[in-house]
Design a protein around this nucleic acid. Sequence first.
DNA 1: TCCATTAGTTAACAGTGTTAGCAAAATTAA
DNA 2: TTAATTTTGCTAACACTGTTAACTAATGGA
Lengths: 203, 203
Amino acid sequence: MGVVERKLRDLEKIKLQIIEQSWLIVEEEGWQALSIRKIADAIEYSVPVIYKHFENKDAIIAYFTRQGFAMMAEQLASAVDLNKSADDNLYNIATSYWKFALEHKKCYEIMFGLGIPQCEVVNSIKEMKATSTVMLTCISKCITENNVDQIDLYLKFKTFWSILHGIITIEFLSNQKTNPEEVSPILTDAIQGFIISLKHHHN
Amino acid sequence: MGVVERKLRDLEKIKLQIIEQSWLIVEEEGWQALSIRKIADAIEYSVPVIYKHFENKDAIIAYFTRQGFAMMAEQLASAVDLNKSADDNLYNIATSYWKFALEHKKCYEIMFGLGIPQCEVVNSIKEMKATSTVMLTCISKCITENNVDQIDLYLKFKTFWSILHGIITIEFLSNQKTNPEEVSPILTDAIQGFIISLKHHHN
DNA sequence: TCCATTAGTTAACAGTGTTAGCAAAATTAA
DNA sequence: TTAATTTTGCTAACACTGTTAACTAATGGA
């Protein structure tokens, strides 16, 4: 009779509760309101229990960062349709990125929330690689489809990502409630510009 | 005999010390290390003295935010040379922006430092207007010089700023020590793309 | 039943922002 | 000069934060 198994399940249940309740707090009151004591209150356990499941508070945040990148990678990947042109796919990836950022604002916030602490974390996240791979492969196809082989793939990739991230940050700063479904004209403009500049590259 | 004046000067001196020492702490240990008690220690006064000069800690941070935008506006303005073409000026503004961000990393950090709190602050800063005006006027000239009058100035402005900010954030995340004088190829690429897309707009 | 492990607790330490209340110093008025 | 008043700066507290040591109660196996 799997007593050990049940115990492990119970432990896992507490961990899930920590994650769940943490997320509730973040959604309602923002990241800076997330505190160990508040989580302990919410899961109706004492404070040290949390440290049995997460090394420290940063580990909890890191968990959401990883999860965020995993979700994003999935969403971007599902935006790609191999029957369409690479140009179209790139545009769809961009709008998909936009949608993700707006639908998961709080998530996107820590994923890229600058400040120094996050930097090292972000660079050591394998889930982040999945995200960038989706973009990289699509841009790579764009380059071959448009016969501009001399172009620097990695440069273009970074440019693409930078543009996307920049637009979203500026959007966040001008905090009008934006509908994720309505893609910003700025995004359309910038991405079209990006694709144009791809085609106009002289081999 | 201006006793009152001297007193005011003394008060001003303390305020300057608060600013000076705060900046030292931030430069050496980062924003999250800045605490009222640490400042008090550094200026060799007790904690409540600080509250005579700043309403609270946020006000100190807001001070640096304002100052940052003022400095940036100045630096961008000085990058403009009326003898040159608007296209060239726009490129120079971009590199100037890049230089500012890298030379004043800690400053740029709070100016655009994520979190929600900053959002409202940023939107209510007149020094920020000065910054955006420099960019706006230059893009406006680009549009007339290139005879693409049908274009949406404000849209292009936002796109331009988004691209710049995005590139810098990504640069910060991949925290290799970058030389501010060496402009990133990503920046050059993106800005050239931006200008190309301006010219290729169909009236 | 006794022992060992584990789960979960309380209570503390060191730090944070902020403020009330008090003492000393400086200025003004008499 | 003395008395009253304002200013200046301090101590100490409050209510938080993350983190951990030390203890108790419960559980599982021999």
